[in-house]
Design a protein around this nucleic acid. Structure first.
Lengths: 164, 164
DNA sequence: ACGCATTACTTGGCCGACCAAGGTAATCTT
DNA sequence: AAGATTACCTTGGTCGGCCAAGTAATGCGT
């Protein structure tokens, strides 16, 4: 019953319900593609998308309390628990009880996992290059600046974690 | 035992393994925040993040084959199957066998779900505003342009779906 | 010293998303 | 017309991620 039975191939492309947020829509698509691209490369290293961030933090900061990870990655505690269980089983991570606090555990990257650091860095580098291919230095800087602004916006009104 | 026991709050911020991809890192963070922001608003409407896109397409295109959804949303077939099962159970979607092809099903939004269209549009609008708050019109256009470029890059080398 | 809130983590459940297989049905080939 | 191929969808499994509850240990106030 809608009057537009024939559309001359110029109307949509963007769903009507998203007309009020074209940038958000584009951002969603880019995010998904970016995550897929990262995931493909990461799977070759035996990591699932998301685990990279845990490992990065552990590589940088060494033994760390689980609550530290939860705070800095801003993830749900249960998410971290399960990720660590799997990372432990796959040998990338080791957990030991914190001697100073019997309800906490200390997490650290295994020696074996440290070899992955360069690989992950490589993956991250090629991903960056693919993502920004063809963009001038100015465009890249501009993109980084705008992303930072948007991050501030989203972080501010969001769950209000730490967003320095 | 590491020499940097006290860090004067200026060293890292970016993990060493991600030094080669600062923009990718920022993009990941923004993407996650954006998805969370969308999810919060959507949950108030009884939708889970991701379902919005299915509904948008159905609202626009009416009854549609499942393969159509899979193609345009570029999702795994199994993902769509399960999403539709849940959307059907929650009353947002109706599925009927395609009379012209007995292995296919036609999917359409229920009348009840059509009331959600404005709500989702509203959510999408406020999300857009929150995302881009404080950005000038030029910055917004620039952001959209850069996102489009990046999307092209990621889409090209990726699974090679349709990226017009 | 006792009780109560806070912190730290775990478990179970659910959803989006992927992959790998499988089962029909249509279509193409010979 | 029969067989092979392809298209359409489902099932089962795994992961990241969230929420809601629950357990256990610490810390604080009185």
């Amino acid at each position: 019953m809608s009057p537009t039975t024939d559309d001359p191939a110029c109307t949509d492309q963007i769903p009507v319900a998203a007309r009020s947020g074209p940038v958000s829509l584009a951002l969603s698509r880019v995010a998904r593609l970016h995550r897929i691209a990262a995931g493909q490369r990461l799977r070759g290293l035996g990591l699932y998308p998301g685990q990279e961030f845990v490992m990065m933090h552990l590589w940088d900061k060494g033994p760390v309390r689980q609550s530290e990870l939860i705070k800095t990655l801003d993830l749900d505690p249960s998410t971290v628990t399960k990720m660590l269980q799997r990372l432990e089983q796959s040998g990338h991570v080791r957990r030991t009880p914190d001697p100073g606090d019997r309800r906490a555990s200390l997490v650290e990257a295994t020696d074996r996992s440290c070899g992955l650091l360069e690989d992950v860095a490589g993956v991250w580098g090629t991903l960056e290059e693919q993502t920004l291919a063809g963009l001038s230095e100015r465009d890249r800087a501009e993109f980084a600046r705008l992303l930072s602004l948007v991050e501030g916006n989203l972080c501010a009104e969001a769950g209000a974690a730490q967003c320095p």
